[in-house]
Amino acid sequence: MDYYVFWQLLLGEISAAPKNGERRIVTFKDARQYAGALSQWKQLKKKRPALRKVQASPLIRAFFVPAAGAANLLNRFADVLSVEEDPRIQLHAVPEEKKGTVVMPWGVKAIHAPQAWSRSTGVHVKIGVIDTGADYRHPDLRHSLASGINLLYRGMLPLDDNGHGTHIAGTLAAAGGTHGMMGVAPRALLYPVKAFDHNGSAYVSDIVLGIDWCVQNRIDIINMSFGMKTRSKALHNVVMKAYRAGIAIVASSGNDGKRGGDYPARYPETIAVGAIDKRRRVAAFSNRGPYIDVYGPGESVPSCWLREGYKEMSGTSMATSHVTGAAALLLALRPELTPRELKLLLRRTAAPVRLRKGQRRASLGGGAADALRLLRAGARARRSRERESVAQG
């Protein structure tokens, strides 16, 4: 493969790219050829400033390029690479009214997290939160946030300019004690990965780079409270890479109130989450179906907000952060669990949801997350495994 010709063709695509922000994902089929193209790119971008707009994901052998099309590229190198669109992806939440101080949100109590804290508070578990960033000044998050990464403005702290990421962070691991809010896993460590802008919008390529960063930094579990209607080969590829690396991904199903749901929750390697309301019914806005692994509290959920405040939000985004927090409580006790084992335990320990008129339980998928039942089942499974090990050896 002539790497110089490859990059010359890509330079042409970049120079012709429209100003509306269209991008393409260029993925190599062969690892050696990708390594050669990557090496050439590192050399050329010193002399060609336009190539600095390109981003790379070695994990899935891909480059992310500002371009509207890539016909010339495909005509020349169709046998060694593939090209797909880099679509936008959206958050799964709707903001409601502002609130004053929040101590113990109803969702944290609904999944029995406080009763589980005598067994686990999520200590040492590293949670990647791919979202809009986080408010590092919020007093309830001060001890919960690690540095993370800002994919939109490299080198800067992943500060939240939207609010959604801070809300998710609060439900996951707020540790305000008696004077502030408590999250599901208050001693877990959050790594904000800012992939979404102030409007709550991101490119798929930014999500890929975020997951790539989480794999490289040995994150234990990733919270992804967003989705889109269409499949993405690149996104599925990086999700599978994280899965094989032992990282569980918890993803929201979407807020269309329909049977079915969004990607990446629909990928089999993720833990798909729907939302329940305060009456323990599947929320009217929540997507549902047999692919849903578990439901979490998602209606009028209070949590942390920007400028040291609090706000209620509804959505499968909120439900996902409850489930990720419960999973973190278990991983603190059972760090050896694989993503598949974690998903099975979440499904097995979920409590039945209440049915709306005309609903059938089988059509909804999983039940409601229960942190206490999850930890008890995890402890039983460990004791059983230890007994088997003693008997065999």
Rank of each mutant, 00 (worst) to 15 (best):
residue 96 E to H: 08
residue 147 S to D: 15
residue 50 A to R: 07
residue 108 V to K: 02
residue 137 R to K: 12
residue 54 V to T: 02
residue 130 I to Q: 00
residue 54 V to E: 03
residue 91 L to A: 08
residue 110 A to V: 01
residue 126 K to Q: 13
residue 140 D to F: 01
residue 121 T to R: 12
residue 69 G to D: 12
residue 146 A to G: 12
residue 65 V to R: 00
residue 69 G to F: 03
residue 126 K to V: 06
residue 121 T to A: 15
residue 117 W to Q: 13
residue 69 G to R: 15
residue 51 L to K: 03
residue 104 M to F: 13
residue 128 G to D: 01
residue 51 L to G: 07
residue 95 P to M: 08
residue 88 R to K: 11
residue 149 I to P: 02
residue 94 V to Q: 11
residue 152 L to F: 04
residue 74 L to M: 15
residue 140 D to M: 02
residue 120 S to T: 05
residue 142 R to A: 10
residue 59 L to N: 08
residue 53 K to N: 10
residue 150 N to S: 11
residue 89 I to K: 05
residue 71 A to N: 12
residue 141 L to A: 01
residue 116 A to I: 02
residue 114 P to M: 07
residue 130 I to M: 01
residue 104 M to T: 10
residue 109 K to N: 15
residue 121 T to M: 13
residue 133 G to S: 06
residue 134 A to Q: 07
residue 57 S to Y: 00
residue 141 L to D: 04
residue 133 G to F: 04
residue 142 R to N: 09
residue 151 L to K: 04
residue 79 D to S: 15
residue 70 A to M: 01
residue 109 K to S: 11
residue 71 A to T: 15
residue 69 G to C: 07
residue 118 S to F: 05
residue 89 I to Q: 09
residue 94 V to I: 11
residue 122 G to R: 00
residue 101 T to S: 14
residue 76 R to F: 03
residue 87 P to A: 05
residue 77 F to H: 02
residue 118 S to A: 14
residue 56 A to D: 08
residue 150 N to Q: 09
residue 68 A to M: 07
residue 82 S to N: 10
residue 85 E to V: 05
residue 79 D to N: 11
residue 85 E to S: 14
residue 95 P to H: 05
residue 128 G to L: 04
residue 138 H to I: 04
residue 148 G to A: 10
residue 142 R to S: 12
residue 122 G to I: 02
residue 150 N to V: 04
residue 55 Q to M: 13
residue 64 F to P: 03
residue 61 R to D: 03
residue 113 A to K: 03
residue 126 K to R: 15
residue 56 A to F: 01
residue 134 A to L: 07
residue 140 D to K: 03
residue 61 R to I: 02
residue 51 L to R: 00
residue 127 I to H: 04
residue 84 E to W: 00
residue 62 A to L: 06
residue 68 A to W: 00
residue 112 H to Y: 10
residue 59 L to Q: 15
residue 108 V to D: 03
residue 89 I to L: 11
residue 64 F to C: 10
residue 136 Y to I: 05
residue 136 Y to C: 09
residue 96 E to L: 13
residue 83 V to S: 01
residue 135 D to E: 08
residue 82 S to D: 13
residue 138 H to M: 06
residue 142 R to Q: 10
residue 103 V to Y: 14
residue 152 L to S: 10
residue 109 K to E: 12
residue 66 P to G: 07
residue 53 K to V: 02
residue 74 L to I: 14
residue 133 G to E: 02
residue 138 H to Q: 08
residue 79 D to E: 11
residue 61 R to V: 00
residue 119 R to W: 15
residue 116 A to P: 07
residue 132 T to Q: 05
residue 106 W to D: 10
residue 147 S to Q: 13
residue 85 E to W: 02
residue 121 T to S: 10
residue 123 V to G: 11
